[in-house]
Deep mutational scan, measured.
Amino acid sequence: NQESVVAAVLIPINTALTVGMMTTRVVSPTGIPAEDIPRLISMQVNQVVPMGTTLMPDMVKGYAP
C-alpha cells in the first residue's frame, strides 16, 4: 500500500508547505504520494487543510501529478 501525504497540523489557506506540516499515512482514497514531499515544500495550499486531512493534488497550487 502506498503512503499518501497527510496534514500533520492545521494548514491555513495560502500557506507555503514545510516538512513539519506534512506526515504520511496509508489512506483511502490515496492522495499525493509520500515521495512527492520534496516537491511540495514551498508550494501553497489553496484551501484550509485540517489536521489529518489527506492532501489531494487539487489542494496544492501548481502541483501536477
Rank of each mutant, 00 (worst) to 15 (best):
Q44L: 15
L17N: 01
N14D: 14
E3L: 04
V45C: 03
V26C: 05
S28A: 14
L40I: 15
V19S: 14
V5G: 00
P65L: 02
T18M: 11
S42T: 14
P38H: 12
V19H: 15
M56P: 00
I37K: 08
I13V: 15
Q47N: 13
L17S: 01
L10N: 07
T23S: 15
T24Q: 11
I11G: 00
P29F: 05
V48P: 14
E35P: 10
P12Y: 06
A7S: 15
V27H: 07
G20K: 14
V19I: 08
M22E: 02
M51A: 12
D58Q: 15
P33F: 11
P29D: 15
N14L: 10
L55P: 00
I11W: 00
V60K: 01
I37V: 13
V45M: 06
M22R: 01
V49T: 08
T24G: 12
A8L: 13
L10E: 14
P33N: 14
M43F: 11
D58Y: 10
L17A: 01
V45A: 11
D58T: 14
M56V: 13
Q44V: 10
A7E: 00
V6K: 02
P12A: 15
V49E: 00
M59N: 04
D36T: 09
P50V: 07
G62E: 11
S42C: 05
A7P: 00
A8D: 08
P29K: 07
Y63H: 05
T30G: 05
Q47D: 08
P65F: 02
I41F: 04
A16Y: 14
I13Q: 11
R39V: 03
M51S: 11
R39P: 02
A16F: 14
T18K: 06
P29W: 03
T24F: 10
N1A: 13
P57R: 08
T30Y: 15
A34C: 05
T24M: 07
R25T: 12
I32K: 00
A64F: 12
L17K: 01
P38Y: 08
A16K: 07
V45E: 01
I41P: 02
T15G: 09
T18G: 07
R25A: 13
I37T: 10
V6T: 13
M59I: 06
Q2P: 09
V60P: 01
E35I: 05
S28G: 05
S4M: 02
G62P: 06
R25D: 13
Q44G: 06
G52V: 02
R25M: 10
G20T: 14
R25C: 03
A8M: 06
M43N: 07
P50G: 09
G31V: 09
G20Q: 11
T18A: 14
T30A: 13
P29N: 07
M21C: 03
V45H: 00
P38D: 10
V45N: 02
S4Y: 12
E35K: 03
N46Y: 03
T30L: 14
G52R: 05
M51Y: 12
T15S: 10
V60G: 01
I32F: 10
A7G: 13
L17Q: 00
I11D: 00
K61R: 10
Y63C: 04
S42G: 12
V60R: 00
M22G: 01
V19C: 07
R25F: 09
Y63E: 03
M56R: 11
M43G: 12
L40K: 01
P38Q: 13
K61N: 11
M56I: 11
T15Y: 08
M51P: 12
T54K: 05
M51E: 15
T23Q: 08
V26M: 07
I41Q: 14
L10K: 06
D58R: 07
T30F: 06
G52E: 10
A7N: 01
P38V: 08
T54V: 10
D58L: 08
M59P: 01
N1R: 02
V49P: 01
V49W: 01
V49M: 05
Q47G: 11
E3Y: 07
V26T: 11
I32Y: 03
P12I: 03
V48I: 15
M21G: 02
T54M: 06
M21R: 04
V27P: 01
T18N: 11
I41T: 15
D36P: 00
V60S: 01
M43R: 14
I13S: 06
M21V: 05
T53P: 00
T53F: 08
Q47T: 05
N1S: 14
T23R: 05
V45Q: 00
V6C: 03
I11E: 00
L17E: 00
T54P: 11
Q2S: 11
V60W: 01
P29I: 08
N46M: 08
A16G: 12
T53A: 13
P65N: 09
V19Q: 14
I37L: 07
L10Y: 07
S28P: 02
P38N: 09
T15K: 09
Q44H: 14
V49A: 06
K61E: 09
T30N: 09
P50F: 04
A8H: 15
P50I: 08
V49R: 02
P12H: 08
T23Y: 10
M56E: 05
L17T: 01
V49D: 01
N46V: 07
L40C: 04
P33K: 05
T15P: 00
G31I: 04
R25W: 11
A8R: 08
V49K: 01
R39N: 07
L40G: 00
T18I: 14
V48W: 09
E3S: 04
V26K: 03
P50R: 09
P33T: 06
E35M: 04
T54C: 03
A7R: 00
V9N: 07
D36H: 11
